[in-house]
Design a protein around this nucleic acid. Sequence first.
DNA 1: GCAAATTAATGATTTATTCAAG
DNA 2: CTTGAATAAATCATTAATTTGC
Lengths: 215, 215
Amino acid sequence: MSPAGSTRWCPTPHQLMMLEEMYRSGISTPNASQIQLITSQLSFYGKIEGKNVFYWFQNHKARDRQKLRKKLTRQLQHQQLYHHHQLLHYFDSPAFRHLSCHNSASPNLFPQPQAGIHNEAAKQVMNCTWKFDITERVDMMRTYDSDWLMMVDVGPQPPLISRRPPLKTLELFPLAASNLKEKFNDDTNIITYSSNSLSPVSCNITPDKVPPSLP
Amino acid sequence: MSPAGSTRWCPTPHQLMMLEEMYRSGISTPNASQIQLITSQLSFYGKIEGKNVFYWFQNHKARDRQKLRKKLTRQLQHQQLYHHHQLLHYFDSPAFRHLSCHNSASPNLFPQPQAGIHNEAAKQVMNCTWKFDITERVDMMRTYDSDWLMMVDVGPQPPLISRRPPLKTLELFPLAASNLKEKFNDDTNIITYSSNSLSPVSCNITPDKVPPSLP
DNA sequence: GCAAATTAATGATTTATTCAAG
DNA sequence: CTTGAATAAATCATTAATTTGC
């Protein structure tokens, strides 16, 4: 456990147990007085100082979140891989070939995968899928019977109907945040959340047009 | 979960977990492309649309802020309630009785629990611990050899005291967070972490002096 | 078995970020 | 816009686990 000349605190099992139980019970960032109280209680079970308690909670909380984050990241990556595999299959399917040849409305999405170079294709897909030129438009606005309008401002809302301003639109998938035009229009209680196209996934495969220096 | 004929989205636990983790990871106002991506990822776990994601983040952020605002008046007390609940079992333990009987440095911390009136004792603890007339002062400071000192009013501290700003004090268990004066003094590498009393745990139980209308 | 070497955990410190008061 | 308080994130540093060769 805690060596005599040790430079750092080493919690006894009992101390650790109680700290963990407190954490589970909702104490994640104790304040000064709580730290003192906890310290004085735990000191019965062994050497301990307020700073130890303070650091313990800091670290425990941080590492708890870290674990969650890593888990999430893994899941997302697995999902992406799954989706890409799905897409790869789709690209190779006759259905897709047909679509990509004949759907002139779709802009440029993926490099055309070719037999025998799937790995390479997959890599490219990984790079490019973030730049889907997906076109869809979503206007979220409050309507009387709508279940999904969003009203954040709970202030008085007199007559609802006639005072609605024109919807504003925004581009979908801008590559820079500064281009974003999402606007939450508080004063009118209307959300306009739209982009300039109409189909969820429409695309052309034109690898040549991919900008050279994409992330 | 989401009833078949339900009109509104009901996140699955998995979806919720991932949304929360994304939020904690820094995504508080996702842009259009992020929303689209998140939606497509989460759709793997159940029905979901972009608007759901959009609204979820809006609501979550707004409610987070709301919570923060209320935190100043509520969090402290809630946390301490948790804390007291947490410690109740300890108060009843032989270990605690021993401590409270023999540790003269902390004489009046808690009312001595007595057999048969545990509930009553618990209530008293709940009421009294909030009004500790504890006076303590704790300075955490970093010294040159990077060791931490935790001084619980060890009186004058000659070498350091002259260049240290006057300690601020606070009540222990203040009822309003605005009284807190925990201070991390970066420029001097000194943490001043103090309250207006002198021993880590010394208190008087003075129920009579309790203001009548405490929460 | 048992240490030296290596790796994983975790305590301690520093740096960056966030929120909001002035 | 600046600043202070709070705290989350990143990092450093030491201890515990464990692996490894004998």
